[in-house]
Design a protein around this nucleic acid. Structure first.
Lengths: 207, 207
DNA sequence: GTTTATGGATACTGATACTATCCGTCCTAT
DNA sequence: ATAGGACGGATAGTATCAGTATCCATAAAC
């Protein structure tokens, strides 16, 4: 398959595919001659994944690159592979909250993790985001929401359990891909479902 | 309070505050003379909100503008106000999935909404995103995740119920603000909690 | 054997989120 | 009263991101 066919097969313009190749999101095709390459089924799959991440989940291209790199690095334990994808997924955020609120939030979040019995390494980027968010909520005067942290954690555990159940791929490669897709598109799924549920409740309650 | 004090009070550079003023994210100060203005406590609050949305929740400035506009438009029913904020929150996404997958997903999603008994207007942007996501998951061969849609919806209902309980503001203005903050920062909260839960389960399972 | 497509490189574009500069005015300390 | 800085408002410049466009020499298709 040449690049033009790859383009019509996926609906992605040729210059964009070239761009993804340049950026290292997509592996180069197999060279059949010094300036001619051929692409396979795997390239179509990969492009579909890239588009879902970029267009649907709005993941920046640089992070998509990290994510696909983590998928291709299957010579490490699966947990490490997933951890790497997770790290690529959590963007660096500028600190927002006041230092005092952040310090208090850190204590609070760590207590929550202990209550839950979660195994979390202290450098997990999601941990920093969580602390920052709790601190920001306090700064914004939304303590009532923070009071439900435990309930949130409980519900979130439900998701994570579900997702582990949902993952049942025959090969290691497909397993890793499933986990990554589930993590990312799962979030889009949850967020749109939540918006829908909120609208419904809001309609019932305030209209 | 002059703009310099507003800047030191919030930690936001003066040029950035001027930029937010230009973009209409922040109401102009009260003019004390033709070229001198004074800002109040409400401006500090608003700037804190803007920074939480922009830096923490990574909402684009144009959407933050819509959101704060919806907060200030308190002359309509609360449900409409929330709906407007919701619309500002759901970015337009390029269609990703194949038309067939999308049509099938639409049927599936509508059935889910009926089973749940949700009140959802057909033009809700979150509905389009949900359909697109389900379709993309099918296209990516992740049917096993889609099979858990009902369980997801169930868990998400839990969130939405919690959030409605959590909202208990004395005034209508603060209520609307609470709902918006809860909707947006709640998502950051859920997403980082979910990542943490996943890492924990992944550590227990695959390490 | 001419037109079209391709791989690879480089340049350009439009959008976003600020920063920087300028100007005339105003307040403030001396 | 005046010098010096801050202010508001406007305009221009910058960095990053995600592509697009163009060019070239070669290869493929008709």
């Amino acid at each position: 398959m040449r690049i033009g066919e790859l383009s019509t097969a996926t609906g992605i313009p040729v210059p964009t595919i070239k761009y993804y190749l340049r950026e290292g999101l997509l592996a180069p095709g197999e060279l059949t001659s010094p300036n001619q390459a051929s692409y396979g089924e795997s390239h179509i799959r990969r492009l579909r994944l890239i588009r879902a991440l970029v267009d649907l989940a709005q993941v920046p291209v640089a992070q998509v690159k990290e994510i696909v790199a983590s998928l291709d690095a299957d010579d490490v334990p699966l947990h490490d592979q997933i951890g790497r994808a997770h790290r690529a997924l959590t963007p660096a955020r500028k600190p927002t909250a006041s230092p005092e609120a952040r310090a208090a939030a850190a204590v609070e979040v760590n207590a929550l993790i202990n209550r839950r019995g979660w195994t979390v390494e202290p450098e997990a980027p999601a941990l920093a985001t969580l602390i920052e968010t709790v601190a920001a909520l306090r700064d914004l005067g939304q303590d009532n929401l923070v009071a439900f942290l435990d309930a949130y954690a409980e519900a979130v555990d439900t998701f994570a359990q579900l997702e582990v159940q949902a993952v049942s791929a025959p090969t290691r490669d497909q397993l890793a891909e499933s986990v990554v897709i589930g993590t990312i598109l799962g979030e889009t799924l949850i967020s749109s479902l939540r918006l829908l549920a909120q609208e419904s409740i809001s309609a019932d309650r305030w209209r």
